[in-house]
Amino acid sequence: MKQPLAYIHPEAKIAPNVVIEPFVTIDKNVVIEEGTRIGSNVTIMEGARIGKNCNIFPGAVIAGVPQDLKFQGEDTVAIIGDNTTIRECVTVNRGTASRGKTVVGKNCLLMAYTHIAHDTIVGDNVIIANATQVAGEVRIDDFAIIGGTSAIHQFVHVGSHVMIQGGSLLSKDVPPYVKVGNAKMSYGGINSIGLRRRNFTNEQITGIQNIYRVLYQSGLNNTDAIEKIEAELPASKERDEIILFVKNSQRGIIKGYTSTSDR
């Protein structure tokens, strides 16, 4: 439904049943799929790819030019997955030559004033609460929940099923299934409530707990802890995911609450 008070570039590709409210601006090289609703005063810039049944609230800006001085106007995109809700004044910048795209997955909720910077990849079923600031080239995996007013440093990797306390400052990678909190941003146990809500069995949860006891409470460094986990704990999808995450971490993982610096 085209609103006469909206500006829609003639080259934009918009499904017939998309709802567009007054004072929306939609640029060229934009695709919006069926069932999506675009609230008033939303700006959708070149390179936006918006999926089905999304709901974008007033004041949001999708596919803005990256805030990266290395950006030279290359042809990049910002992708929003199906059934994702983007609340008031959220900004999602498009990619740079680094990855070529910024992605927000399916069934996500980005609360008001959240910023998703260039080349960030957000998985499916992710919730990012109000005023969270996500820097460039961050990766946030499926089912992660990020508390409000958090800030995530460039290149950080947040694992799946993670719960991040509001007001967090993340400069290290966060491995899967854990809770992170307190002023020093350390491990605070596993996200057992969230895992039960997603139908993880007691056996799976116990297995994850045992892995993190070795990683964070055995007094071993990460390399020795991973060797012990591989040698002594039974193989499972969760075990292998955690091991791979730690081995591939570029910034190092968050510290444990038993580290010397916490005493």
Rank of each mutant, 00 (worst) to 15 (best):
S150D: 11
S150W: 06
T149G: 05
G159E: 02
F155Q: 05
F155L: 11
G136T: 05
I116M: 07
V158Y: 01
A135V: 10
G123C: 04
I152L: 09
F143G: 02
G123F: 04
G148W: 13
V156P: 00
S150H: 09
V158E: 02
A144I: 09
T114K: 04
G159W: 01
I146V: 15
A151K: 12
V138H: 06
Q154K: 07
N130K: 04
I145K: 09
S150C: 13
N125F: 11
I145N: 14
V122E: 02
V122W: 03
F155D: 09
G159F: 02
I128D: 08
I145M: 15
A131T: 14
R139A: 14
Q154H: 09
V158R: 00
R139Q: 15
E137A: 12
T114R: 06
D124N: 12
D142E: 10
Y113G: 05
G123Y: 04
H153D: 08
T120H: 03
V158K: 01
T114W: 12
D119G: 13
G136Y: 02
T114L: 05
Q133N: 07
R139W: 12
H157T: 02
V126P: 02
A129I: 14
A112H: 13
S150T: 15
V156L: 00
I128Q: 08
D141Y: 13
I116C: 06
A129L: 15
H153L: 09
I152S: 06
V122D: 04
I121A: 00
D142Y: 10
R139E: 15
N130D: 06
V122M: 03
G123R: 03
V156W: 01
F143Q: 08
H153M: 07
G148Q: 12
I152G: 02
V158D: 01
R139Y: 11
G123N: 05
F155E: 03
I145Q: 13
Q154S: 07
S160R: 12
A135W: 06
H115T: 15
I145Y: 13
S160W: 01
G147A: 11
H118D: 00
D142G: 08
H157N: 01
S160I: 04
A151M: 13
F155I: 03
Q133Y: 04
H153G: 10
H157W: 10
H118I: 01
I140D: 01
I128G: 08
A144E: 13
Q154M: 07
D119E: 15
A135M: 03
D141R: 11
T120E: 02
E137W: 09
Q154P: 06
I152T: 05
G136W: 03
A151Y: 07
A131Q: 13
T114E: 08
I140R: 01
I152H: 00
I128A: 08
A144M: 10
V134N: 05
D142S: 05
D119H: 15
E137C: 11
Y113T: 10
D124K: 05
V158H: 00
E137L: 13
I145P: 03
A144H: 08
V138D: 03
G147M: 09
V138W: 03
V122T: 07
H153Q: 13
G147L: 12
A135Y: 08
R139I: 15
D119P: 14
T114S: 11
A112D: 14
E137K: 11
D124R: 06
D142F: 07
V158F: 01
V138N: 01
D142H: 10
R139M: 15
Q154D: 04
H115D: 12
I140H: 00
A144D: 10
A112F: 14
